[in-house]
Computed example of a mutant assay.
Amino acid sequence: MTSSDRSPILPASAAAPRSDSEVERLHDLILSSLDDDQADEVVSIPLAGKSTIADYLVIATGRSTRHVASMANKLAQKIKSETGQLVRIEGLATADWVLIDAGDVIVHLFRAEVRSFYNLERMWGFGDNTDSTN
């Protein structure tokens, strides 16, 4: 196989655009998965119209690195089984802060100390009230 025969591997954010209802289903799937896995302090920040990187930014806390890693792995599996989409995951090796790029929804999973240090809600909230789901 030559290099011209290979199709490029695109990050989730480079996938074909989704309809609004598909984005909402993905967002609901992510929130449901985090709820099932007993994530703490789940916050969803709508980014549509504010940023082109995603429609939602979801932030949640795990009780330990093992809990964070488990939530990330289960979430990636659920997204793949429900949508057929592969997601990109960064930070799984240490699991202090795991980023999951699901295209229209970006998920940040933290240990509590790391989350309070980076305080992404303040950075991405743009002064709006964020939608806390817990």
Results as ranks from 00 to 15, higher is better:
Gly103Ile: 07
Val68Lys: 03
Ser64Thr: 14
Ile106Lys: 05
Pro17Asn: 03
His67Ala: 05
Ala39Leu: 04
Ile79Glu: 05
Asp104Gly: 08
Arg6Glu: 14
His108Cys: 06
Ala72Pro: 06
Glu24Pro: 04
Phe110Leu: 06
Glu24Lys: 14
Leu109Asp: 00
Ala60Gly: 10
Gly84Trp: 00
Glu90Phe: 04
Met71Lys: 02
Pro46Asn: 13
Ala76Pro: 03
Ser13Asp: 08
Ile9Arg: 14
Val58His: 01
Gly91Thr: 02
Ser132Gln: 10
Met123Val: 15
Asp37Leu: 15
Glu41Gly: 11
Leu86Glu: 13
Asp101Ile: 12
Arg18Pro: 01
Leu92Met: 12
Ser33Lys: 00
His27Cys: 07
Asp36Phe: 01
Ala60Asn: 09
Ala39Tyr: 01
Ala60Tyr: 01
Arg66Thr: 11
Ser116Ala: 15
Met1Asp: 03
Ile30Glu: 04
Ala102Pro: 04
Ser70Lys: 14
Val87Tyr: 02
Lys80Gln: 07
Ile79Asp: 04
Glu22Gly: 07
Leu29Trp: 09
Tyr56Met: 12
Arg115Thr: 11
Asp40Glu: 15
Thr133Asp: 06
Ala15Met: 09
Tyr56Leu: 11
Val23Asn: 05
Thr133Pro: 01
Val23Gly: 03
Ala39Met: 10
Pro11Ile: 13
Leu99Thr: 10
Leu57Val: 14
Gly62Trp: 00
Val98Met: 02
Leu47Ile: 10
Thr2Pro: 02
Ser13Pro: 02
Ile59Cys: 08
Lys74Leu: 13
Arg25Gly: 11
Thr133Glu: 05
Val68Leu: 06
Asp101Tyr: 03
Ser44His: 06
Trp97Phe: 01
Ser7His: 14
Val105Ala: 10
Glu41Met: 03
Asp37Gly: 14
Gln38Phe: 07
Ser51Val: 04
Leu31Met: 09
Ala112Arg: 15
Ala76Cys: 14
Ile59Asp: 07
Thr65Val: 09
Glu41Phe: 02
Leu31Trp: 00
Val58Trp: 01
Leu31Arg: 09
Trp124Tyr: 09
Ser4Leu: 11
Gly62Met: 06
Ala48Gln: 14
Phe110Tyr: 10
Thr61Val: 08
Arg122Leu: 10
Val105Leu: 07
Lys74Ile: 08
Leu34Tyr: 01
Asp37Arg: 15
Ser51Leu: 06
Pro11Phe: 07
Ser132Trp: 05
Ile100Pro: 01
Ala72Asp: 08
Ile79Gln: 00
Ser64Arg: 03
Arg6Val: 14
Arg88Glu: 09
Ser7Val: 15
Leu99Asn: 04
Val98Gln: 04
Arg66Asn: 07
Leu92Arg: 05
Ser116Thr: 15
Asp5Met: 12
Thr65Ser: 14
Lys74Asp: 14
Arg66Cys: 07
Trp97His: 08
Glu22Leu: 09
Asp36Ser: 12
Thr130Glu: 09
Asp28Tyr: 00
Lys74Ser: 11
Ile100Asp: 04
Leu29Lys: 08
Leu86Arg: 12
Ile30Ser: 10
Ile53Met: 13
Asn129His: 12
Ile106Leu: 04
Glu121Leu: 03
Thr133Gln: 14
Ile106Arg: 04
Ser32Gly: 15
Val68Ile: 05
Glu41Cys: 08
Asp36Pro: 06
Ser3Arg: 15
Ser3Leu: 13
Ala69Asn: 05
Gly49Lys: 09
Thr130Asn: 12
Gly91Arg: 02
Pro11Cys: 10
Thr2Gly: 15
Asp104His: 03
Ser7Phe: 12
Asn73Lys: 12
Ile45Thr: 10
Ser51Asp: 11
Leu10Tyr: 07
Ile9Tyr: 03
Leu86Trp: 12
Gly103His: 06
